[in-house]
Simulated scan of single mutants.
Amino acid sequence: MLNNTKLIIYTFLLLTITSCNSQDKRPLMGETPYQQKLNASYKDASKSPLKKKDLKNFKGLDFFPIDSTFIVTAKFTKIENAPTFEMATTTDRKPLYKEYGLLHFTLKGTECELTIYQSQDDLRDEKYKDYLFLPFTDDTSGNESYGGGRYMDVMTTDISENNTAVLNFNNTYNPYCAYNDRYSCPLTPRKNHLNVNIKAGIKTFKKY
């Protein structure tokens, strides 16, 4: 059995270790699980697209306030027998895509339509074969949000049996080119511009 002196020392050491461990476990940055996951990946040097100086000073990505009015249900129309085409990028790279379908929805009283794409390279990868690619620009592009547009991931499994899909513009992200010009990123097609201010999701990145 420990005597009183040893017990006091033992308790002090235990509290010190616990306090240190608590300080190491800093809370994840972000208001939602989506934002926290995105911030965590950008903070991780092994995954982050950030340049070294930006990573060193990284304190989290900037987002618009969460706004439930930017969560909409869209009507999906499949595009049958769509041809494969080379999508323009920020470099000479020309990845192969197909137009997968059209999404029709109303946002802030404005009738909107976006074309959703399917990467032909992703079809060969079991991990990403169900991913669809939804790039868009809006009236905040080039000001509060990245000029090249923002992206949203939609899964084929997100499209319901009655051909609808929920689009959450709070869960958008920038192409890697917004952070580092060494990346090659698809350019948002002009027809995917929305004549509305999408003040939701990721903002433009302020580089150091």
Rank of each mutant, 00 (worst) to 15 (best):
T156A: 08
I116A: 07
L134E: 02
S145M: 00
L114Y: 13
F63K: 05
L103G: 05
S41Y: 08
I79M: 11
Y176N: 07
G142V: 05
P95V: 07
I198S: 05
Y42S: 13
Y100N: 02
T188S: 02
T16R: 12
N39S: 06
L102K: 15
Y34Q: 04
L107E: 05
A82K: 01
T156F: 09
K129L: 03
G30R: 04
P135Q: 10
D92Q: 14
N143E: 08
F58L: 13
C112S: 15
Y146K: 08
G147N: 10
N143T: 09
L194A: 05
T90L: 10
K207R: 15
L13G: 13
Y183E: 00
P49L: 05
M29N: 06
E31N: 15
T5W: 05
M152Y: 09
K59M: 12
N57L: 11
G201P: 12
Y176R: 08
K191S: 04
L102I: 07
G147D: 02
I159L: 03
A45Y: 09
A200D: 04
K199S: 15
F12E: 03
T188G: 02
T137E: 00
T18D: 00
L38V: 14
E99P: 00
P186H: 10
N3A: 12
T204D: 12
A74H: 02
T188N: 01
K6W: 13
G30F: 04
T157C: 02
L7H: 04
H193L: 08
F70R: 10
K47F: 05
T16E: 07
K37C: 00
Y10W: 11
